[in-house]
C-alpha cells in the first residue's frame, strides 16, 4: 500500500494539469489524428491525402492519418466519436457520414461539428463505350421497356452512389436492377466486363478509362470542369430536371461536439492555408474536383443544407433507420 500512497498525489497532480494542457492548443507533444473512414488508396483517401500533406506545413502538432474502413464509413466515424473531444482527432466527413448516419450505423453527424467544408467529386452515370445506350433517355427507355433487366450499379449501399442509384430507380418506379458493388473498382470491373449495363461513378474513376466508358450524364448542377468530360450533359440538359439525386461525394472535416473553440479555429485556419496552397489547387484542377470551401459556422450551415436535402431521398429509398 505504501507505494500507492506515494502515487496518489502524483496522480492528482497529473489530473490537475490535464485541463491546463487542453487549453493550449496546439500542444506540440500531442499528435493530431486524421481519421479517414475508408481504406488507404480509395477515392476519399486519395482526395484528402495531398491536403493533409500540405497541412503539415501549417500546424505545429504532428499529424498522422489513420485509415479505419468498414461498415460503410461508420467504423471510422464511431472511432472519432469515442476519442476525447480535445481537438486532437478530426474525421474526414461528408456525404458518406450523412448516408451512414441516416442508415443508423453511427450517431455520425448528430454528434459531430463540421469545421471545414472541402469539395465535391461529381458523379457520372456511364455505360460501356460500345453500348447501344447513347444517352440517359436511352437508358431510361431501355429499362422501361424491360423492367428489372437493366443493371444500375453503385459502389455500395452505404455511400452516396448507393443513395443516388436508388433515387434514380425510385423516380421511375423501380425499373432498374439496382446492384451494390463492393467499392467503385469492382463496379468498374463489371461494367467494363459487360456484366452490369450502367454504373454511377465518381468522375475520377472515369478518368482512368476515358475510351472504354461512355458517360451519359453528370449529376452535379454544372458541367464537368475537365476538358475531356466537359461535353457530358447535366441532368437538366439531358431532360430530367425533375430528378433529385445526390450529385457527387462531398468531403468535409469534422470534430466531436464539445471540442474547444481554440482548437477548432486553429485547425480550420490551418486547413484554409493548406487548401489555398498551389499544390492542392492544382491537384483539384487535375482531378476536376469542385471547390466549395467554407469553415466553421459556414461549413456547418452548408452541411445542414445537405442533410435536409438527403433526408427525403434516403427515406423514400427505405434505407432510413429511426
Amino acid at each position: 500500500m505504501k507505494y500507492l500512497d506515494a502515487l496518489a498525489p502524483a496522480l492528482l497532480l497529473a489530473a490537475a494539469s490535464l485541463p491546463a494542457q487542453a487549453q493550449e492548443w496546439p500542444n506540440e507533444e500531442l499528435v493530431l489524428t486524421v481519421v479517414v473512414p475508408y481504406a488507404a488508396g480509395g477515392g476519399t483517401d486519395s482526395a484528402v491525402r495531398p491536403l493533409i500533406e500540405e497541412l503539415r506545413n501549417h500546424l505545429a502538432v504532428r499529424i498522422q492519418i489513420s485509415n479505419i474502413g468498414g461498415a460503410g464509413s461508420a467504423a471510422g466515424t464511431n472511432e472519432v466519436l469515442n476519442m476525447p473531444a480535445d481537438g486532437y482527432a478530426v474525421l474526414v466527413s461528408g456525404t458518406h457520414t450523412i448516408a451512414a448516419t441516416m442508415q443508423g450505423l453511427t450517431d455520425g453527424y448528430r454528434e459531430l461539428d463540421q469545421i471545414v467544408a472541402l469539395n465535391w467529386d461529381p458523379f457520372i452515370v456511364a455505360v460501356l463505350a460500345d453500348s447501344k445506350i447513347e444517352s440517359m433517355a436511352d437508358l431510361i427507355d431501355a429499362a422501361q421497356a424491360a423492367p428489372g433487366t437493366i443493371c444500375l450499379g453503385n459502389a455500395g449501399m452505404g455511400g452516396a452512389t448507393g443513395v443516388a442509384s436508388i433515387a434514380i430507380d425510385l423516380a421511375f418506379d423501380g425499373i432498374f436492377n439496382v446492384t451494390p458493388f463492393d467499392g467503385g473498382q469492382n463496379l468498374r470491373t463489371d461494367v467494363l466486363g459487360g456484366r452490369c449495363d450502367a454504373g454511377i461513378f465518381s468522375q475520377s474513376e472515369i478518368l482512368t478509362n476515358p475510351d472504354d466508358f461512355r458517360p451519359l450524364v453528370i449529376l452535379t448542377e454544372d458541367r464537368s470542369l475537365l476538358d475531356g468530360l466537359s461535353d457530358v450533359p447535366n441532368l437538366v440538359e439531358a431532360g430530367f430536371d425533375a430528378l433529385d439525386v445526390p450529385g457527387g461525394s462531398f468531403r468535409s472535416i469534422a470534430v466531436r461536439q464539445g471540442t474547444p473553440d481554440a482548437a477548432r479555429e486553429a485547425i480550420a485556419a490551418a486547413f484554409a492555408a493548406a487548401y489555398d496552397s498551389a499544390s492542392y489547387q492544382s491537384f483539384m484542377a487535375e482531378q476536376g474536383i469542385i471547390s466549395t470551401f467554407a469553415t466553421l459556422e459556414d461549413a456547418q450551415a452548408y452541411f445542414d443544407d445537405l442533410v435536409t436535402g438527403y433526408e427525403p431521398i434516403v427515406r423514400a429509398s427505405g434505407l432510413y433507420a429511426q
Binding site: G41, Q185, R188
Partner: peptide, 21 residues
C-alpha cells in the same frame, strides 16, 4: 492497364500514382 486495383495493396499503389497526377 485498367486502373482497377485488385486488392488493398494495389489500391494504395494506384492512389500513389493518382496523387502524382
Amino acid at each position: 492497364s485498367l486502373g482497377i486495383p485488385g486488392d488493398a495493396v494495389t489500391a494504395v499503389l494506384l492512389g500513389a500514382l493518382m496523387i502524382k497526377g
